[in-house]
């Protein structure tokens, strides 16, 4: 299948491997990722103020492009996915916002067609679960990760706000655990897996961010994990920075690429 793909700024810089492993795994699973042309940075966080238009337009541009191609819009970075999905939801539910956005976009382009959140926004995890199916993923595994005890770290952006994200049970998610199982490894459940890593506060108050990250790390370590996987470059940065070298933290796509046997291929470089 073909899907529209929104990589996001970090995937072109410090998180190049997240992008590469995603592309390699998608290819191995028969999914074509068509990168959105001239995509712009999502802004990192969704602004909840309902009078903010400009900060949401990059999402709108990506959404309308995917919609025109009748493709779902897939991203892999938690933050991009969160911003795009929340923006799309606002287009569906906030008529006033949609009206103003549509007016603005029309001024930019004569060919713009009215948009009300029709596009389907998916995280790469959802693509794996709902479109490909974890059973198919499991069947495609070449190097089983058997014996590894892996802690899934969701953070906040993947799941919340639950009403909008609708990925999984916000308080007791299982999508990454199910993926871990599909790859042959053993998921480790711990309570802080859906708590915030400290996020962007890391810049302003590194200490308070460190406390958050520590809580996550300690939770995963005491539950017996050998490895933490995440979908978010900022989560990974915070966990690695505050985890010293207690436990490795990798992107879930790296794990996927490894299990599918495409980690060392050209696609992943």
């Amino acid at each position: 299948m073909k899907v529209s793909y929104f990589p996001g700024c970090t995937l072109k810089t410090t998180a190049k491997e997240l992008d590469a492993y995603t592309r390699a795994s998608a290819k191995a699973l028969g999914v074509t990722l068509e990168e959105i042309e001239n995509w712009q940075c999502c802004g990192g966080v969704f602004t909840t103020a309902n009078d903010e238009i400009a900060t949401k337009l990059s999402s709108i541009r990506a959404l309308t492009e995917a919609n025109a191609k009748e493709q779902p819009l897939v991203s892999v970075c938690s933050a991009c996915h969160n911003v795009i999905k929340q923006t799309n939801r606002a287009m569906q539910t906030d008529a006033d916002f949609a009206f103003r956005v549509n007016n603005y976009m029309r001024m930019q382009s004569d060919t713009y067609t009215e948009y009300h959140g029709e596009a389907r926004v998916m995280h790469f995890l959802e693509l794996l679960r709902d479109e490909i199916g974890f059973d198919k993923v499991a069947a495609a595994v070449k190097n089983s990760l058997k014996g590894k005890k892996i802690a899934a770290y969701y953070g906040c952006l993947l799941l919340r706000p639950g009403k909008t994200m609708q990925m999984d049970d916000v308080e007791n998610p299982r999508i990454i655990e199910d993926l871990i199982r599909a790859l042959g490894a053993e998921p480790v459940i711990y309570a802080s897996r859906n708590e915030c890593c400290g996020g962007y506060v890391a810049l302003d108050s590194p200490d308070s961010a460190a406390k958050q990250s520590r809580k996550v790390l300690d939770g995963a370590i005491s539950a017996g994990a050998d490895l933490i996987v995440t979908a978010c470059p900022l989560c990974r940065y915070n966990l690695i920075k505050n985890g010293k070298s207690d436990i490795p933290v990798v992107y879930f796509t790296e794990l996927l690429a490894e299990a599918l046997g495409v980690k060392e291929t050209e696609d992943a470089q």
């Binding site: 049970d169 916000v170 308080e171 007791n172 459940i189 309570a191």
Partner: peptide, 11 residues
């Protein structure tokens, strides 16, 4: 209690 798993009923 399915929708209130912040209280970890199912966990």
């Amino acid at each position: 209690m399915d929708k209130f798993d912040e209280y970890a009923y199912s966990q």
